[in-house]
């Protein structure tokens, strides 16, 4: 097999790859949704509870952040059935990727919350707001703008990590390219197209994130 780019073949497989791209986007979106919620829970837990649970949670998050996502995906997918929870590839994949990125987002939220001036907390106390009200109505709305740039970067990151889901058979872009490759023994077109689709999606998104970050900085007067 030598280098010969076959346009006909490329155009023939493009619809199949684009359909799989939708799955990739869904996976990234759902995974990110889980990560956003779980990350907030972790960030708040890191601030509230006692010393021991806090240290423990910090270590757990550190563990999640410094071990490979692929191994985590395998772990969740294969260990689930052993303890009696059989997870479909999609569910296992979403949990793994959501959990992985929640550890990163917790850090982003934490930095955002810490960027809110002390005086805001003191005002909350002066106004006799409950902790819950202080967070929901005063602190988090101000913390969020500080967190947005970091959140944007991890959105692009999660999108680029979705190909790892192919290892447990989630039918996303990479998996589609793999099966085209094994059906036709042609790897040049599918893998190149996958690369191009990723570029076409992640470069504009990264650009938008940068633009949004600059706008936000100006608005916040940073």
């Amino acid at each position: 097999m030598t280098f010969d780019w076959n346009w006909e073949f490329a155009i023939e497989i493009l619809p199949r790859l684009l359909r799989a791209t939708i799955n990739t986007l869904i996976a990234a979106g759902v995974g990110y949704g889980i990560a956003m919620i779980l990350g907030l829970v972790f960030a708040l837990a890191l601030r509230s509870s006692g010393r021991l649970p806090r240290t423990l949670l910090r270590e757990v998050l550190e563990f999640i952040r410094s071990t490979p996502l692929v191994v985590q995906i395998f772990f969740i997918f294969y260990v689930g059935p052993q303890v009696g929870i059989t997870l479909s590839p999609w569910v296992a994949g979403m949990i793994a990727i959501g959990l992985h990125y929640s550890a990163y987002l917790a850090e982003v939220y934490r930095a955002g919350i810490e960027a809110v001036p002390r005086g805001q907390w003191e005002s909350c106390r002066a106004l006799n707001l409950t902790t819950r009200d202080s967070y929901v109505r005063i602190i988090l709305p101000q913390a969020l703008p500080h967190a947005v740039p970091g959140m944007g970067n991890y959105l692009v990151g999660i999108f680029k990590d979705t190909p790892m889901l192919s290892v447990i058979g989630v039918t996303e872009l990479m998996q589609a390219a793999n099966s085209i490759g094994s059906e036709t023994y042609r790897f040049l077109e599918p893998y190149t197209l996958v690369g191009l689709i990723f570029l076409a999606l992640s470069l504009p998104t990264a650009g938008l994130v940068r633009l949004g970050e600059r706008r936000l900085r100006r608005k916040l007067g940073l």
């Binding site: 680029k160 990590d161 979705t162 190909p163 790892m164 192919s166 990479m174 390219a177 490759g181 790897f187 040049l188 893998y191 190149t192 996958v194 690369g195 990723f198 570029l199 992640s202 470069l203 990264a206």
Partner: peptide
Amino acid sequence: GTSLLVQLYWIFFV
């Protein structure tokens, strides 16, 4: 702009 996995497969297979 692309995934490590895509790059790996591309370098190894293509």
